[in-house]
Design a protein around this nucleic acid. Structure first.
Lengths: 360, 360
DNA sequence: TTGAAAGCGCTACCAT
DNA sequence: ATGGTAGCGCTTTCAA
């Protein structure tokens, strides 16, 4: 019957103000949204009445509903926001999206969707947005279908997604290959790989081949395949490559799990990390052990986060900001063509001082 | 007349599906929102019809309007999101807010409101949120009034704000004083201060007393006052303290503006930076000049960001995450009491190796 | 278990 | 320059 029964407090509305001033709702609405549609004096009178009545201005939700525009784009994360913010790579991507959002007066709705917490369906359903960026949402994640189902513009940054979803990213495999080729060219043959996690988050230590293949993260699989490509080329069997999971994408986690790489007989001479944050952790571990990167051991990262330069880390640079900007634009102004955009941005090997010739 | 004229595409709605299945809107609504209100078979039939008709599920905006809940809390920034994300301190705060938001299935709407870009009024008015966190919004910023006017729960982290706004923060002045007292106790008397900016962003170099006083950022003024307290105590005239603006809160900016501190006759023996990011920049500049922190010059930061530990930076630790969590909670469940909460979280001086006795 | 009615608060359109 | 009308798409209450 009456919405008020829902427990909402009675509040002043457009109508209240209109009645008070003795004009129509339209006019009050115009006072806020189209100042040029009424004369200044009336507008002032309306605002004055609004103040008196404690009318807070047009309701944002109602306005969105009527206008058919939410004024926000949704960023979906499957990790906790805490992690998302913690990695400078993510931050770079977000900055990119934010830039284009800012330009069009659009907000960014962060939609946390970590494994245990809450119901992904509800989170997606209730998000008041004009489109979504899927950001590190693994292939099989339930959120993906829900989001598609909402029928809003959608962009993903995850490589092997459904080809019907617009995509912006990099050539994961080729880029990883560059990193590994660099190492191989320097003569390294005993190589280890550091990843965040293969199966669920939290799993640490060496990962079996099966586990690697089972990873739900396409980007990860792509990078591993790239490493493998380069190693195959020189006859290094992938089975001989120890793949170690840090458990999560954190510098300290990587440092501690580095024990599985550094403290073993026949220590690898090179470590490929699938992200700079992990690589920096490996470097920390090296330092603790008195190993000099570039001389005693070589370390290559991925991303080229700001901190990588300071650490003189050899890494693969990907244009994180540009990725974010492209993704943002694609959501804000979906191309009308039939063809689904699939954009690959260029990457580049940045050689600094953490890599050097393989020690004999 | 007809809303469709607005240019919106015709889409399937609840009603469409209801008609197709031959039930009422209520029943379809229940199928989505209250599964226990109808039998399984009917629910399936409804979903099936929805699929066939391309009905994307209940519209989030309409649902929000009807329910009176937006399902998001607004985070207002007056800098570009790019900067906001770039500082680990901000990130720590955001992580805190995110944590409590996640727990209650609430999203975070980032509302960019940088000086030049777009209209703050529009941004605030259109934000579909249940409350706001004001985050580094200077005292006189127009956004503040607009947000208040919306009448939603509101929390600020900026100290000397309107006392009618719930506040969570730290004792800026006392904390800064701790930092300066530490320096003073080590015998330093020639002291410089590094700030991000006093007046508008972008102003760099030494700042006059008038400029310092005119700063619109209460936190900054509080910290400067704290430094001054400690220096006054030992007879160091504040006029003799060179306050240098980096122009913005960035490590590289601080490094380059450090010239105004390090490359002058009678070089200061200690530098107080109002944030760790700036302090790290000062350290970079010291390194370039071959100055050893803790021996040739002392540097103190503020915040205790993760990077500070790695750099062995002496600093004032503030609980950024806790600040965020408290702020989030205060917005999500505004206390019903009359008294406006004003929470000050504890801080702590963390002495590492960038400070040492004043060189003679 | 299902449905009819009653709006949530607003803005676009057209007419005056 | 101002107003009347007609919904935007949904959920809730109450009754059947």
């Amino acid at each position: 019957m009456d919405g008020r029964v829902d427990g909402r407090a009675k509040r002043a509305t457009l109508q209240t103000v209109a009645d008070e001033v003795g004009v129509s709702r339209t006019t009050v609405s115009n006072a806020y949204g189209r100042p040029d549609q009424l004369n200044k004096a009336l507008r002032e009178r309306i605002f004055e009445a609004a103040r008196r009545l404690g009318y807070p201005g047009p309701d944002a939700t109602a306005r969105s509903l009527r206008r058919g525009r939410a004024g926000a784009i949704g960023l979906v994360f499957t990790e906790t926001l805490s992690y998302a913010f913690a990695d400078p790579y993510s931050v770079g991507f977000l900055r990119g999206v934010a830039e284009v959002a800012e330009e069009s007066g659009t907000g960014l709705l962060l939609i946390p969707m970590p494994p245990g917490s809450g119901d992904p369906e509800t989170a997606v359903r209730n998000a008041v947005v004009d489109g979504f960026c899927l950001y590190c949402v693994p292939g099989g994640h339930p959120a993906k279908e829900l989001i598609r189902a909402r029928g809003l513009p959608l962009v993903t940054t995850d490589e092997t997604d459904d080809p019907s979803i617009p995509y912006v990213g990099i050539d994961e495999r080729g880029s990883a290959r560059m990193a590994a080729e660099h190492i191989v060219r320097l003569g390294h043959r005993r190589v280890a790989v550091m990843v965040d996690h293969v199966s669920g988050p939290g799993t640490t230590g060496p990962a079996t081949l099966d586990e690697q293949r089972a990873s739900d993260c396409a980007d990860l699989r792509g990078r591993l395949a790239g490493y493998r490509d380069a190693l195959d080329e020189v006859g290094v069997a992938w089975e001989s490559v120890r793949v170690v999971a840090a458990g999560r994408n954190s510098r300290t986690a990587a440092a501690s799990q580095s024990a599985h790489i550094l403290d073993v007989a026949e220590r690898p001479t090179a470590v490929l990390a699938i992200g700079d944050v992990l690589a920096l952790g490996v470097l920390d571990a090296c330092e603790q052990r008195g190993l000099v990167p570039g001389r005693d051991i070589s370390v290559v990262g991925f991303d080229d986060v700001p901190e990588a330069e300071r650490a003189r880390l050899t890494t693969v640079r990907q244009p994180m900001g540009e990725k974010g900007r492209m993704a943002g634009r694609l959501v804000l102004e979906p191309p009308r063509e039939e063809k689904v955009p699939r954009i690959k941005l260029p990457t580049e090997l940045v050689v600094r001082t953490t890599t050097g010739p393989a020690p004999r």
